[in-house]
Design a protein around this nucleic acid. Structure first.
Lengths: 139, 139
DNA sequence: GTCTTGACTTGGACATAGTCCAATATAGGA
DNA sequence: TCCTATATTGGACTATGTCCAAGTCAAGAC
């Protein structure tokens, strides 16, 4: 993620304290924070950062392809910085925890041409649901 | 869908005018309305029906397994009454139109055991994104 | 180092989606 | 026809996200 800032600078971004903090918050594996969670964590490092800046910056990162939006439930969108390794998601239906997972085979090929209705299909997302070990033990 | 009302009665539901109208609105193929769209259509037949009743009834239908929630974007949830034929969704990234599609092969098997992290995986949803013929022509 | 300027940030108002609740109405059995 | 548990209602409230005008500042020019 450290070179994210360099990539952004290369694209003409002004590197503000706010953007740096947001990039730091998004650093790591299996990070899937909501915008409000990103804001809460950013505030710990930069107390005056606003919600608007977080929403703006996340939207820009998504537009640049540096972060992807994930919506596994109908609640808040989550932001996944793990874009350089293709993956899908495994979601615990108990606690909502999300793991990045890699699938086998060609998921796109699972959709026959006869089922494409003239669409130019260019993306497929797969979400697996189950109970994580903790939630399975608790029930 | 006409026998939906019978199934609900068998489960002890009271058949009110509101529930009948909601069931009628959800009748059909490739129906994926938001709660507000269901409400707007229900109001045409029963002007005094409230938003709360629509939300309540949709939630109950989901709990009973008669309707499934679909969230393809981060916006409002959509309600899909086509539960008796397993299917996935194809979404136009231009206009948001949704088609039900049937996939080939075992999507669950695409997730290796080594990628399950101890989860008891019991469901998989797949969403294909592309541009429908109309939106492709317009761009 | 300082100036300048256009891009960035901010707080707050607004919009949209959904939930909750106390009061009222009613389906369907007695 | 009556009774009552269940359903409906309007409206307040919460959560999530968007928009905007005013103020701030990063970084290139000098």
């Amino acid at each position: 993620m450290s070179d994210l800032l360099q990539r952004l600078r290369d694209r003409g971004w002004r590197l503000t304290a706010q953007r740096r903090v947001i990039a730091e918050v998004l650093d790591g594996e299996h990070v899937h924070y909501t915008a409000e969670e990103v804001h809460a964590r950013a505030v710990e490092r930069l107390p005056e950062i606003s919600r608007a800046s977080v929403y703006n910056t996340l939207g820009e990162l998504v537009a640049l392809g540096e972060v992807v939006e994930v919506t596994t439930d109908g609640r808040a969108k989550r932001y996944d910085p793990n874009v350089h390794q293709e993956h899908q998601h495994l979601v615990c239906s108990g606690c909502g925890m999300i793991r990045d997972v890699r699938t086998e085979g060609d998921l796109m090929a699972a959709l026959p041409f006869g089922e494409r209705f003239g669409f130019a299909v260019d993306e497929v997302t797969v979400t697996y649901y189950g109970r994580c070990p903790g939630c399975a033990a608790a029930s």
